[in-house]
């Protein structure tokens, strides 16, 4: 379950300055295995909301529960272990430039100390899913933007996360690849993964109907 109650997020340019609110009083709940689209205009606070979910930011106030854990009361170790249960597709991919496609995708499994045999099987399978089985050894700078995005998606789902958070995951994909990605995500969702996808692609939202969270100017204006 993902639960927000009256969550506020404030960004400060420098410590001690008042800062400004980017999220104001956000409340919603997504049950285990739920699927939500997160929509809203650019700058509305979608990425900031996702950062709170994958524990990259701390709220100024409010209550956050992620996968049954109260985010405000966990140690750094617990936060790290919780992050391993969350798959994240970043808008800017965030691949490690010095690693091959294979090693980038394998990274979450290695962090979780999975065996290399299992890693090899799962990474190879997911790279085949995203159509990059012939680019295992390519480094990110040798791949197109779309291919990098598919690597980022593969990395996010390879460890079968309990929660998948994606920020514009189809932004660099053609229609066929976007469809293929959505097949993968809906399959994961059917297997019990909770999914939250931030997007501007309303055609995609229409094609895969699911409850929406809509944010405008830091406030939740639609929930359901």
């Amino acid at each position: 379950m993902v639960r927000f109650e009256d969550v506020w997020l404030k960004y400060r340019t420098r410590p001690g300055t008042p800062g400004h609110d980017v999220l104001r009083g956000i409340s919603f709940e997504i049950p285990d295995g739920g699927f939500r689209w997160l929509t809203g205009p650019s700058g509305a606070g979608k990425t900031s909301l996702l950062k709170l979910i994958y524990l990259a930011e701390h709220p100024a106030r409010g209550f956050i529960e992620i996968l049954g854990t109260r985010a405000a009361h966990i140690s750094r170790r617990e936060a790290a272990l919780l992050r391993r249960r969350i798959g994240v597709v970043y808008q800017d991919f965030r691949l490690l430039p010095q690693l091959s496609a294979y090693d980038n995708v394998a990274l979450p499994m290695r962090l979780a100390h999975r065996g290399e045999t299992q890693i090899n099987a799962d990474v190879t399978e997911i790279l085949r899913w995203v159509g990059l089985e012939d680019r295992l050894n390519a480094r990110p700078d040798e791949l197109s933007g779309g291919a990098q995005q598919r690597i980022a998606i593969a990395r996010a789902v390879v460890a079968r996360p309990k929660l998948l958070v994606a920020d514009e995951p189809t932004g660099n994909l053609d229609d066929e690849q976007a469809q293929r990605l959505m097949l993968l995500i809906t399959a994961l969702n059917r297997l019990g993964t909770t999914v939250i996808i931030a997007t501007h692609n309303m055609a995609l939202v229409e094609r895969y109907p699911a409850p929406r969270l809509r944010i405008e100017a830091g406030r939740m204006v639609q929930n359901g």
Partner: peptide, 16 residues
């Protein structure tokens, strides 16, 4: 910095 931030975000422990 970027690499460590990414690995940290993927769930690496500080100790690791």
């Amino acid at each position: 910095r970027d690499t460590i931030t990414i690995v940290h975000g993927l769930g690496a422990l500080d100790g690791d």
